[in-house]
Design a protein around this nucleic acid. Structure first.
Lengths: 247, 247
DNA sequence: CGTTGGGTTGATCGACCTCAATAAAAGTGG
DNA sequence: CCACTTTTATTGAGGTCGATCAACCCAACG
């Protein structure tokens, strides 16, 4: 089991290029995808003033399980792994957050999982209480958050099916297809799926070991269903992969 | 794989004892546990007028996956299994709904899973659109629904850990402990955990076969951690079981 | 260079599945 | 009430998929 705790990075926040504090939401590629889409321009501008645009570097921890959750985050770029650690060191990755995703849906007192940046991650950070008050004043935003939570719940239940009832090969196929679908919501249709996470991360997400994940990648490659690239995978035969993943 | 589709029961709804249409919410044992708790007496009374109090008999299907979701439900008594079917007949139980639970959190167009009554189940049924309109007029109820959805999401993520990272024995121990905790929220502290679902249901929930579930029950019994009763299990050594289940 | 972290591949092992038999329980009709 | 079927639960024997253990490769980096 890898340690995952980065011994460096005592300072959690590092501003990358926080050029102007003015409303950049207009140019934000995450806007239409994220919770912000529920807001009219004037409210969006108000929300924008509450946001700290910050940036996490690769392998940096955004927050940790069981810590008080002082902030919520709207991801405007990059990928994040979300995971739970067990007392014995076992780890379960509960999901990967991409551009447009919102962290802090539950708005509970404490984080129920930890989050690490996988690559350079840009976020709008909001103090939890400030955001909560803003939500109370904007029922449409609350509705949108509820839709997001419901959607997350569906995703999690799909993942239950994958973890509970599928073979290693099917798990990996389902993982690739699902990630491609999420990517295509952001970038438009893609065949080349970037995989910013390690095999270990994928294994901890799918309930498999690194070795098995690696074997399944090569097995899918031998069947000409994918090509493994240094930073991801190209899906050659989506129909067959989807059939494997079929829910 | 059992068929699960009950050939009988073409009529979905059977009223059990719909005595008075007046507000019985005051005596409802689910009230403080369920979404209703968000409402003031006058609003509660309004909501009550929108409810159809109906009853499902054991093994009756409440609704099916992919069907248009015309209704949402507040469970006031009994237990329900929620599950997804795969094309090849495999089944994943995504959860069990108990007294106080709400079905229809996502309020999407179609059901994302099927639901069967395990025993006699009492519900308040609401037309989806009517309920949705009521929610729009009562942000506090929306907030409560969001809390429920967030809680469900946490439960699902805990289940991901159980499915992904735990042995058969740990899975069954975790299942029993979790069910006891949920029961005790309803009834107060209990050691005798009723199990209205079959071993098959438990297996389909935990990603195990019936045989393995059965073996784990007898193994836990041999370790004097539980006693298997005809309609459930008595937890003899909660601390040890909780240690097994420890997240 | 040596070191370190991530990835792949092979050999072996074991937890859980599969298949099969039996038992117990619950419904069904006479 | 008793035969009869059907469903559910338990137990055993054997097989398999994925875990474990181990070696090796490769790229990044000091």
């Amino acid at each position: 089991m890898t340690s995952l705790r980065d011994s460096s990075a005592p300072s959690r926040l590092s501003v990358c290029h926080n050029s102007k504090s003015s409303n950049e939401c207009e140019h934000c590629q995450a806007r239409s995808l994220s919770v912000c889409a529920a807001l009219e321009p004037e409210d969006l501008s108000r929300l924008d003033q509450l946001a700290r645009k910050i940036c996490f570097s690769p392998r940096q921890t955004m927050f940790e399980q069981d810590e008080p959750s002082d902030s919520v985050y709207n991801i405007t770029g990059g990928s994040v792994r979300l995971y739970k650690l067990l007392p014995d060191g076992r780890r379960q990755v509960v999901g990967f957050a991409l551009c447009g995703d919102f962290l802090g849906l539950s708005m509970g007192e404490r984080n129920v999982f930890s989050a690490d940046a996988l690559n350079e991650v840009n976020v709008c950070q909001f103090p939890r209480q400030v955001f909560s008050d803003f939500v109370d004043a904007h029922p449409r935003l609350l509705r949108r958050l509820h839709e997001f939570a419901s959607h997350e719940l569906s995703i999690a239940q799909e993942q239950l099916v994958i973890l509970g009832r599928r073979s290693a090969e099917e798990k990996v196929a389902a993982f690739l297809v699902a990630l491609r679908d999420r990517q295509s919501r952001i970038n438009g249709s893609v065949h080349n799926v970037p995989l910013p996470m390690t095999r270990q991360d994928i294994g901890d997400f799918l309930g498999l070991t690194v070795e098995t994940v690696s074997r399944m990648f090569t097995r899918l490659a031998k069947q000409k269903l994918i090509v493994v690239t240094p930073d991801g995978a190209r899906l050659l035969d989506s129909p067959k992969l989807e059939a494997m993943a079929a829910a």
